Amino acid sequence: MKAGFPQRRQRRLRRSPITRRLVRETYLSADHLIAPIFVEEELDDFTPIPSMPGISRVPEHALAREITEIARDGVKAVMLFGISHHKDADGTDTMDPGGLMARMVRVAKQAVPEMLVITDNCFCEYTTHGHCGIYRDGAVHNDLTLARLGRQAVVAIEAGADMVAPSAMMDGQVAAIRRALDEAGHPEAPIMAYAAKFASAFYGPFRSAAGCDLAGDRLAYQMDSANGREALLEALLDETEGADLLMVKPALAYLDVLARLRDRTLLPLACYQVGGEYAMIRFAAQAGALDEATTARECLLAMKRAGADLIISYYARRAVRERWLSDP
C-alpha cells in the first residue's frame, strides 16, 4: 500500500451483489407505480399510438379485460384518461353520471374491485377547443372552471373512483374540489393535485394520444419551465387548500423541483413520467442506442431518489410484468 492511501474504500461494499443490496438506498416496487390508460369510446379495436410505441388506445368495450390483465401483471393502480366522441365547448360529458368518465370508472372497479382507480380531472380531452377549462372570449375562465371541476370530481367519486387528480392548473382548484366533495358527502375522498404542472414540450405524445391538441398553447395557466420557486409555491398552496398528495409533471426535467419540494412538505409526492420521456427511451432503444429496461429503471430510480413516493409511468406495466424492478 502506498503511504497515505485513503483508508476509506467505497468499493468494499460494491464487490458483492449481496452487499450492494444491503446498502442500497432507493427501491422500486409495484406499490410505487401507477399505469395511465387511454380509453376511447366507440372504438372497435385497440389502436396503437404512433408517437408512443407499445401503447394503445383501449376501446371502451375492452376496458374490463384490460384492467383484469393489468392487475394480473401485478400493477395495483391505474389513472384513466377518456377520449370522448361527445365533445362540446364546456366538456359537459365529464359532469354526466352516464358520461365516458363515469362509465370508465364503473367498468374498472367492477372488473377488479381491489384496483386503485384514479381519474384525471380536466377538460382538454372533452372540449372542442382542447383547453383545460371553460373557454370564453379567447381565454380560459378560471372561476367558471372551478365549479365544473367540483362537479366533475363528485361524478367521478360517486361512480366509484378511489381518488381524483385535478390537472387543469386553475387557481383554487383543489379548494373548490375539496369543498364540492365534502358538500356531496365524500369527505374521505383523496385528492392528488397536479401541483406543479409545467407547460412542457414533453407532452407532445400525450396530446396526440388523448386527442387534445389545440390551436395555441396553455402558457397562461400551466407553469413556465424556467420557474422553480413558483413551482414550490404552487404546490404548497395546493397543500393548504386540502390536497392529500402533490404531483410534479413532467418528471425527469424537473427532478430539482421534486427534490426541493420533498424538503418542504410531509405529504406524499407523485411525479408523472410523461409521454415524451417514455418516447425518448423507447425510440432510442428501437434504434439500438440504449437498453430499454435498464434505462427505464434508472430513470424511475432517479425519480424515487429525488423524493417521489409514487410514479405515474407508461412503463409501469412492463416494469412490473417483466421484472425490471428486480435488483441487477
Rank of each mutant, 00 (worst) to 15 (best):
A35C: 06
E234L: 13
E40S: 05
M101T: 04
R318K: 11
M115A: 02
S326W: 06
A195M: 09
A168H: 09
A156V: 01
G4H: 00
S16C: 13
D291T: 00
A259F: 15
M247P: 02
P59G: 04
R262K: 13
Y272N: 01
G172V: 05
I134P: 09
I118W: 01
P166F: 02
S167A: 00
K87S: 06
A193P: 00
V140Y: 03
R103M: 10
Q173I: 04
T26I: 10
E125I: 06
M280L: 13
A184Q: 07
V274M: 14
P53V: 08
Q7A: 11
V112T: 08
P36I: 06
A289F: 03
G150P: 01
R20G: 04
P6G: 08
H131A: 01
T94M: 09
Y126G: 09
G150M: 07
G99D: 12
R103G: 07
A270I: 12
C271Q: 01
G133Y: 11
G99N: 15
V248A: 03
A108E: 01
A64L: 06
Y126S: 13
T127G: 05
S29C: 15
G276F: 14
R264W: 14
A201T: 03
W324K: 00
Y254P: 00
A159D: 03
E60D: 06
P205Y: 10
G172Q: 03
D263P: 11
A196L: 08
A161S: 10
P113Y: 11
A289Y: 00
V257D: 01
G242D: 09
V174Y: 12
L237N: 10
A102T: 09
Y203Q: 07
A111F: 15
R282H: 06
E60A: 13
A161I: 07
T294I: 07
R262E: 05
I18N: 12
D44K: 14
D143G: 06
L33H: 04
R229H: 00
D73S: 11
L116T: 04
D213Q: 13
P205R: 08
F46A: 05
F81I: 09
M223A: 02
R65P: 01
Q152W: 02
R24D: 09
V58E: 05
R260W: 13
A293S: 06
A296P: 03
M280S: 03
Y194K: 06
G211S: 07
F206G: 00
G185W: 14
A259L: 15
D88A: 04
A189R: 06
A30M: 10
L80S: 08
R72N: 08
V164F: 05
M280V: 03
F198W: 05
F123L: 15
M192E: 01
A147T: 05
G172S: 01
L301N: 05
H186F: 11
A161F: 02
V107D: 00
R323G: 00
T145P: 12
P328Y: 02
R24H: 14
D217M: 05
I177A: 05
H85F: 15
V174C: 08
R65S: 10
G172E: 02
